[in-house]
Structure formats: structure tokens, C-alpha cells
Design a protein around this nucleic acid. Structure first.
Lengths: 348, 348
DNA sequence: TTTTAACACGAAAACGTTTTCGTGACTTTC
DNA sequence: GAAAGTCACGAAAACGTTTTCGTGTTAAAA
């Protein structure tokens, strides 16, 4: 088990100084061609590669960016990572991940762990708990120490940093308008509690669309799912709630759901109640995950372009990292990724 | 934008030596209580945290593990990462990801990038291209340099390292036996080309199950999908192939597919041909992804316990890292994660 | 009083780089 | 033949730690 070879070892072996080796490898004009050749050949033979850690220490930059997300087993987030990784690699950066599991404490710990020199900057999406507690001290402290942060999707507008967000409001509005144009008269909304900014905006889009068509929103058509019975764990209760929604609104002919699972469940309930999708009731979801594409009938959704979000976030971060001179001007951008309505079989 | 504070700065500020500060913070007995208190208070005030990079350089270990996977937008792989991250964090390690996108070149580049000091060891699953080319020099070189590797899922048995694999053979066998016991007489297999070890083993399991029930396999019941038309991109062609399979085998009453997509497509085709699942034809897939759970009818699958694989792989790796003394004995384990058959609506 | 021991701290090396600044040996120039 | 310039290389500092080994001061023991 031989260790990796270092400059020092090459120097000793070739009976020159460390400086000479270093310069020879970087093709410095200071070194004679003879020596260069000798050194380079030797280095190649022993497969010398400079030690990243030593470089990081010397340069005070790691060429690594950290990404903090609530969970990774999730089509949207993994797609974002994919985008981040793509541009990071293209620009010579590595990506290190931290999962918060929607927990405030884990988010803080993870960030502190990475902020101590391991990375040059963060791309992050906040955990639900953090959003609920509205405690952003860890974010602020990190930024104060000169470490740039780019937030995406689950952002909070007060924080002074770059942001990449989805056009939740217009995405939702577009979807609901589509339902209306397709002839729906009684459109339900299945959404989350309001503290997740994303859910709130989508709700507003729903209301706005109704308003523009002079339809009055009815409280009984809006179902807010308690986050505590998050999907996977409590699918059946969730289904019951949605069934109840259908039963107490017999005229229901359209559903807009803020995520895939809610939409799929709505279709399932409809089928169970003998309703045909899309003939009796049309359904639109949010997030272009695998479920929408492979469901039967396949689901019309609002596509978020997650990969593009990741790419943009990484670009913003790296741009900031590489223009380090502007310590003063400090201007932050918010990039909005537009949504597309992908029409499939669940709408007419 | 103030930089993070260092030992040197604290030392200068408090007019003591760097050594004293370091020792005081680590509560060394060499330092008087007076000085300790002073130093610790100051450090706390300025939120001192030791610089990870400097520590890594000094200790020659980064407490970071690298994970190389073919893609991340994939339920199985993201679940594995989730498992790796879980135990890594529990044991004080960070996780850095590298995506190969199923490309040999990217796999090599990524590994070289990380192997130069950034990480202490690898968890990896090989790209299809690497498996096809059978070029493992990068793996061997990395191991020669004393960097441990744990492979999972897509492994190659010749390589001398720890491995974590799924019991593909028995998983497949169990599934097919289930179909047989449920009364299927004509069972199709939808699989991949053989060079992906995983596909090969599942095929063998299928054959073995038939054999044990003295059923003779028929070539026309085995559909090998060409990898080049991998899912997502060529869904329609794929569907046609499967439809052809159904039509040229009218007595078909069972399907075992080596992944979710193939299984879902089989159900779709069956429905299209007026066949009821599970009454006319029963279907079992492989991989416990989201699709299986949320499909209609929901899909009976062989569960791979991806998260558990990740956890186990990380444990093996960290165990090896932390027992560094055994440079000689070099014994490697192969852990087999057993599969479970999760019965849902697509079987009787 | 002298020797010894305990105490509290500092200097310096080491981890592996890059880079600045010398410096000795030649070569050129007048 | 002396001054100046070029060439090829080495010493050392710096990045931020930890740790080993002094060392000067004071208190206890002889």
C-alpha cells in the first residue's frame, strides 16, 4: 500500500529542490529543458498529481461547493443536484451534499460542518422546519463570514442573497386557466399549509385564475393537507380526505394539486367513484416527476425545470466565487425559472 | 466580509503563542485555568471553528467519502446515497458525489479528481460503459494507492475490494416462483442485455424458477431490451416491442420485468389489449421505486432495500478506514442484501 | 542554600503546495 | 579584465493546524 507520491519525494529522488520540481512541472521558464524533461518524465512515471488539500489550504479555496437539501429521494431535488453537478464539473468544481431531512437542527449542523473550510459556497433549499421556525441565524452567520449562498425553490425573501425560484404563481394560474378553458366549472385545489412559500404562491395563482374568469372561490373546494401526514407514511388518510372532498362536492369537474402525489390520489379517488378522467373530471399536478409521465392516464402537470434550476443556481454561485473582487457592491439577483404546462391525458 | 478567525489571530490578540491557544481550546492540562478561560471565552465570542482543510492536511485524512454513481435522478441510486449519507454523518464523515452519467470517461475523470486528497475512500457503482468495456484500470490504480473502495450493485467479481450486492438471483427466482404458484403457465421475461451483471443474474433466477417447476423456457418469451433505447428517450419503441411480445404469445399470463418501467409498460400494453391485470395476466417488477407503489394497479415488486445497501456500503468503508493498521491481511467481504417480494395489486 | 520537581508556556516541525526573492556560475559587453 | 546581464536553481515563507520538545520561573524537598 504505497502512498501517493509528493513533490518532496520527487525532489529527493532526483536530487533537486522542491521548488525546482514544482516549477518544472508547471513548465516554468526558470527551469532548463533538461531538468524539466527529467522531472516531468519521473512525475509521469509515478503518476504524480498535486494534492488537492494542500492546494486548498494554500489557495484558500477548495473548488468545492456544498448543496444542502431537505431530502434526496425526491425527483425534484435529485434533478436539481444533477444540474448543479453538471455546471460545477464543467467549471472545475466538486459537489458535496448535505441532507437536512427537513430538520432545522440537521440543517444547521450540516452547514456548520461544511462552512469550516470544506467548501467555497452553498446552494441550498430550506427545510420545512426552518421555514416554520423562521430562524435563519445560520444562514446569516454563514454569509457574514464571507461565504456566498444561493437559495433555490424554498427561499425566504428577506435574506440578502442570490435566489433561483420557480414561477409558482403563474404556473398555478396557467394550470387553472387551462382547466377553466377546458370547461371546468367547479375546480378544487389540493394544497399544503401556507408556511411553505411555494404552496402559498400556488394557492394565490389558483385564486387569481378564478378571479380573472369571474369565478368565486369556494372554501369547501380548497383542501389544505396537514404536513404532518406527509405522503408515503399516511397515504390512506390522505386518500380519505380527498375522497371526502369529492363526495361533498358532487359537481366537481376539475382538480389542481400542488404536487404529483396529491394529483395521483385525486385520479385514484375519481376512478374509485366511477368518474372518468379526463371526461368527468380533469386533473393537473405540479412538478414534472416520473409519476406524472408513467401514470395512467398520464398526468398533465406544471413542469418546474428542476435541472435548469440547479444549473442556474450553480452558475450564480460560481460567478460570485470567481469575481471575488466585488466585496462591496453586493448586489443580489433573483432568477425566476418559468414553468411550462405539459399536457397529457388527464386533461381534455 | 470578514474572514473566519484563526488560531494565529487569537494568539496575537491575546498576546500568547499559537500553541497555547491550540492547547487551551483542547483543554490541555499544560495550560493554566486562567489562560484557558480567557482563550475559550475569546474563541467563543468570535465563533472560532478549526479549519477543516488545515486539519485534513495535517492528519492526512479528510473525513470525507466519495460516492460515484451512474446517475442521481433515479430512485434506487438516490436511496443508496441517502443510506450512505446517514451513516457517514453519524460517524462524522461528509459525502461528496460524482456522477458518471453511465460514461466511462466521466467515471475516470471524477475518480481521479477526488482521489487526489479530497476524500478518504470510495463507494461506487459502475457505469454501464465501464462494464461493457471491462476496463477497470482506474479502480485498480486507486486501490493501489491505498484508497479503499466499496462497490455496490453493479460490481465486478474479479476486483479485490469489499462489495455490497443485491441477491438478484434469488429475488428473481422468488418472483417467478410466485407467478407460477399463482397459476401462470406462460411467463415472459423482460430484461436487459447480459453485460450488466444484474440483468444476467435476474435472468438466471427466472430460468432456475422455471426449471424447478419443470417448465421449459421458451426463447420467444424472453425479451432482451437493447440498452441503446434506454427508457425515457424511447418509450414508444419500447412499448411496441412489448406489445409484439404479447401478440406473438397469446397464452401469455405472467410477466416478470427486471425494472419498474418495463413492468409498467407491460401493464399498459396488457390494458391496451383488453387484458385485465391481475386476472388475465400477472406482473412483477424489480426495484421498490415510487412508480410501483403509485401505479394502478399497484405493482408487485422485488424490493432491493437500496437504503440498506447504502448504509452497509458506508459502514464497510468507514470500518476499513478506521482500522488502518491492517495493511497486510487484506481480506474483503461481499455482503448480500436479501430481497423481499412486496405483493401488491398486480398479482393475485 | 542548593537541588529537584512541577508548572505554564513558546519554538518549531510537519502536512504538500506555490511563489517570491536571493545567489552562484557563466556569458556577454565594452 | 571588470561590469553587467543571463541562466538555473534553492531557501524560505505562507496557508492553519497539532504536537513534541525545550525552557524559564516558581515552589517544594534536601
Amino acid at each position: 500500500m504505497k502512498r501517493k507520491i509528493t513533490l518532496k519525494q520527487i525532489a529527493r529522488e532526483l536530487d533537486v529542490s522542491i521548488s525546482t520540481v514544482s516549477k518544472a512541472l508547471r513548465n516554468s521558464a526558470e527551469i532548463s529543458d533538461d531538468t524539466k524533461q527529467k522531472v516531468q518524465a519521473f512525475a509521469k512515471l509515478y503518476n504524480y498529481k498535486p494534492n488537492n488539500i494542500a492546494l486548498s489550504l494554500k489557495n484558500r479555496r477548495t473548488n468545492t461547493i456544498g448543496i444542502i437539501i431537505p431530502e434526496i429521494v425526491h425527483h425534484f431535488f435529485s434533478k436539481v443536484i444533477s444540474g448543479v453537478e453538471l455546471v460545477a464539473n464543467k467549471r472545475g468544481y466538486n459537489v458535496i451534499i448535505g441532507l437536512s431531512n427537513e430538520s432545522f437542527a440537521k440543517e444547521v449542523i450540516n452547514m456548520e460542518m461544511l462552512a469550516n473550510g470544506s467548501i467555497d459556497g452553498f446552494v441550498l433549499s430550506m427545510s420545512k422546519e426552518t421555514l416554520k421556525l423562521q430562524d435563519y441565524h445560520h444562514i446569516n452567520e454563514t454569509m457574514t463570514q464571507g461565504m456566498p449562498i444561493v437559495m433555490f425553490d424554498r427561499v425566504v425573501s428577506d435574506l440578502r442573497c442570490d435566489k433561483v425560484i420557480v414561477d409558482d404563481f403563474n404556473g398555478a394560474k396557467k394550470a387553472v386557466k387551462k382547466l377553466i378553458e377546458n370547461g371546468c366549472k367547479s375546480i378544487a385545489l389540493i394544497t399544503t399549509e401556507d408556511y411553505v412559500s411555494v404552496g402559498k404562491l400556488r394557492t394565490q395563482g389558483y385564486l387569481e385564475a378564478l378571479d380573472e374568469h369571474t369565478m368565486t372561490p369556494k372554501a369547501e373546494l380548497i383542501l389544505k393537507i396537514d404536513e404532518s401526514l406527509d405522503y408515503e407514511a399516511h397515504l390512506e388518510e390522505l386518500e380519505k380526505e380527498i375522497e371526502q372532498l369529492f363526495q361533498s362536492n358532487p359537481t366537481l369537474d376539475g382538480v389542481f394539486a400542488v404536487n404529483e402525489i396529491y394529483a395521483l390520489l385525486a385520479m385514484k379517488v375519481a376512478r374509485k367513484l366511477g368518474l372518468n378522467v379526463p371526461n368527468d373530471v380533469q386533473v393537473i399536478g405540479f412538478t414534472d416527476g416520473v409519476l406524472s409521465k408513467h401514470a395512467t392516464p398520464s398526468l398533465t402537470t406544471v413542469s418546474q425545470h428542476a435541472q435548469q434550476m440547479g444549473e442556474k443556481a450553480a452558475e450564480l454561485l460560481i460567478d460570485k466565487l470567481e469575481s471575488e473582487f466585488n466585496s462591496a457592491d453586493e448586489e443580489f439577483q433573483t432568477v425566476v425559472i418559468t414553468t411550462d404546462l405539459i399536457e397529457r391525458e388527464s386533461t381534455k
